[in-house]
Design a protein around this nucleic acid. Structure first.
Lengths: 224, 224
DNA sequence: TCATTTTAGTTAACACTGTTTACAGTTTAC
DNA sequence: GTAAACTGTAAACAGTGTTAACTAAAATGA
């Protein structure tokens, strides 16, 4: 049955609450959600917010899920762009990672940043979304590894028995080569380090043009 | 003139306040400082805290400066350990970075994590401390670049005019080669990405043994 | 030893927060 | 037209940071 007029209005009000909450986070950080502030902005009082979200935690969870969804959308869109080679597809994914982060930094901070006091993300909701965002990268790397001209194989260190033992329970059932997971993790941690230190203003004082540094590094990541 | 007995007691009380503040951050995150909570823990009321720190911001600033100082101490100590070669010294610094972060994760979160609502770190205090922490790494890399057996030079991409223009104003006066700054930034962003994604529990679900992954990657960073 | 000054701590107050309860007005469904 | 559901409010409770005024204790100087 299609939603009633009232249900539509309810959903619109939920979106409005979320938009104002995002704006509060942009202004004051991810830990700065204020229900009274949101209500004030809407011309309401704080108890009215409880008609739309059971608690402040539920608002934060909704924002976090939206952030993961948008992130996954961006990674999937990047992976689906036509690319001359699989290697350039990986570069495209890497560039898209930073672009999404720079253009959506408060979402990035919410996903990857410090915990919010007295809030714990419900893993049963966020883990599937987190995996979804990671899949385009690991798929591309696994595809690259199948290429006859696959080069960086030489640069994977020999996986130690200790690391193999740690990884196998998570990936053997899925038939995913451990070297692929290793390379995807390497790529991800490198990309993430550059983006995070740039967004939090640690590398720009050193390197000046963090965007250009990132571009050069993304390209050289596949030449190593 | 040596501090009076009263001044010593004052300093001891300031340290006690800071220790309790650290413990609050460990329990609830960097944004969770509560003056009333600190006072309660000490058997005082909240206004008493204002005898020792002008505001909540001043407590946070004191914690942040302590964190940067300890971090700089750890980097300097790592750089001063005897090492068979300059390359192994760089590895030692890299391993020390993670060890410090893992053992002092709330300090790491305070330095590198999300902003605390309505708090801005005073850059005139934190920037010198941040630079001090970075110096051991960049010194080691610059020393390595002087070695006759310096290898990774081939792996530095050609610095584009755009990046050179951005970097030169910051480093030319100090006579620091831009390639050295580039490599130090690369090393730092890679180390930081691995450590951050591990501490915030993003890579352990993928890679199982993040410590072993880190060790392998640190070693291979200088083999590339 | 006593008076003065300084320090340390408290209470009360103000303005903010999240959340709940009870109530009232409006809208929707029957 | 009426009952039910939804939406919003006021009041209340318990938390927060911060200030002002006050008091007691400790330190200093005469």
């Amino acid at each position: 049955m299609p939603p009633t007029r009232r249900e539509k209005q309810h959903a619109i009000t939920r979106e409005e609450i979320k938009q104002i909450a995002w704006e509060q986070m942009r202004q004051q950080g991810t830990a700065a959600i204020s229900l009274r502030g949101i209500a004030r902005e809407m011309g309401l009082t704080a108890p009215a917010i409880y008609r739309y979200f059971p608690s402040r935690d539920d608002i934060i969870t909704a924002l976090l899920m939206d952030a993961y969804t948008q992130f996954g959308d961006a990674m999937e869109a990047a992976a689906q762009q036509p690319a001359p080679s699989i290697y350039e597809q990986i570069v495209t994914i890497g560039l898209a990672y930073r672009e999404w982060a720079v253009n959506n930094r408060i979402q990035y901070e919410l996903i990857f940043g410090n915990p919010i006091p007295e809030y714990a993300a419900p893993a049963e909701l966020t883990l599937p979304l987190a995996r979804r965002a990671f899949v385009p990268l690991i798929s591309a790397i696994l595809e690259a590894m199948q290429m006859s001209d696959w080069q960086p194989k030489a640069h994977i260190p020999t996986l130690t028995p200790r690391l193999i033992d740690a990884m196998q329970p998570r990936w053997t059932a899925e038939g995913v080569p451990l070297e692929g997971v290793y390379l995807a993790t390497r790529f991800w941690t490198r990309v993430h380090g550059m983006v995070t230190l740039e967004l939090y203003d640690h590398t720009p004082p050193l390197i000046g043009d963090a965007s250009e540094f990132y571009r050069l590094e993304i390209i050289s990541l596949l030449e190593e």
